[in-house]
Structures are given as C-alpha cells and as structure tokens.
C-alpha cells in the first residue's frame, strides 16, 4: 500500500520474521480402528449437515429470533458470597501474559511446535492440539532494529536456518 509508506516512516528498517513450524501428531492410544473412526467422522459430518438443515427450518418457523430475556437482563451487583464465588471461579489470581518472543536487531526467530498437550481450562482437563504445549501461542513482538543480518544470534532451541533472506533484496 502506497498509503502506508508516507505516514509511518519511523520504522527504520525491514524486519525479518523467520518462523519454523513443526507439526507432529502425538500418538494417542487408538480409541477406534481406522474403519470405525472413518465411520464416526462421516456420522459427525452428516449430523452437522442435518443441524444446518434444522437451523434453516427453525428460521423459517421464526424460532431463531434474538432472546428477549437476554435483551432485558442487566448485570447485577454481587453479594459478598457471590463475589467470593466469582473469585473462586477465577483460574488465575493475576493476569497471565502469554510467553513473549522479541525481535533482536530486526529479526525474530521462533519455533512453533504443534502437538497435542494436556492443559486445564477452569477445572476441566483438556487434551488439544497446541503451539508449544500451551493454550495460546507466544506473543511475537517485532521492533524495528538495525542492520543485523550478519550478527550471529543466540537461538539454541530454534530449528530455523539463517541465510537466504536478504532484507534489501526484494522488499525495499
């Protein structure tokens, strides 16, 4: 966009954001054999299609209008007991920031490993596909940096290979 070029000049140099992603399935003891699984998946697809058909039919009957009760209901002041109950629901007594990965001298290296991981939502255990085993991926923070392509960077756990991306080659 030509329009950006004139306004936001404060970015001193191009940023490189190499990301390496590794997908892996974390083998779980098979719950069903392949055929049963395929049938189960097809069953789910059929039910999902049916749900949409039903959605259309209910709409045609005028049953999907906004909930009047929700429109009227207003949040209420909580009693001391309710407040205590609320705080018991709180999974973290403080505010949890995701992990943070920052750019160094205009480059940011991060590895996102994809695998199923055990975590907890409220009091429920879950076993879900994840980035790096968490329920949220790391926050990537890019700050315009200096010319750093030839400065070696510490990246002990990154699988990213350097080189091959010249910040001035294609973009400037």
């Amino acid at each position: 966009m030509k329009t950006c070029h004139t306004v936001l000049r404060y970015c001193a140099t191009a940023l490189l954001l190499p990301l390496s992603m590794a997908a892996q399935d974390n083998p779980q003891p098979p719950v069903m054999d392949a055929t049963a699984h395929r049938q189960a998946v097809e069953g789910a697809r059929k039910r999902l299609q049916n749900a949409w058909r039903e959605f259309g039919e209910r709409n045609a009957r005028g049953e999907m209008a906004p909930d009047i009760f929700s429109l009227r209901v207003q949040p209420k002041i909580l009693t001391t007991g309710e407040m205590e109950g609320l705080m018991k629901q709180a999974q973290a007594a403080t505010f949890p920031e995701p992990d943070v990965v920052r750019s160094v001298n205009g480059k940011l290296n991060v590895t996102l490993n994809v695998f199923k991981a055990r975590n907890q939502i409220g009091s429920d255990p879950v076993y879900l596909r994840s980035y790096n085993g968490k329920l949220v991926g790391p926050t990537l923070r890019c700050r315009p940096g200096g010319h750093s392509l030839h400065h070696g960077e510490q990246q002990p756990r990154s699988r990213t290979r350097h080189g091959g991306c010249d910040e001035h080659a294609a973009w400037v």
Partner: peptide, 24 residues
C-alpha cells in the same frame, strides 16, 4: 504441514508497515 514434518517460514515485514496489534 502434514504430521511429523517441518516447515520454515520467512516473513519479511516491510519497513514502513503500520505498527499495531496483529495475530497469527
């Protein structure tokens, strides 16, 4: 990216890219 494989990405952010809250 199929299971048990690895994909490298290199995303070059133009130097005049607007600052702000994006996501991946």
């Amino acid at each position: 990216i199929p299971p048990r494989s690895e994909q490298k990405y290199e995303i070059v952010i133009p130097k005049d890219h607007p600052a702000g809250t994006f996501w991946y």
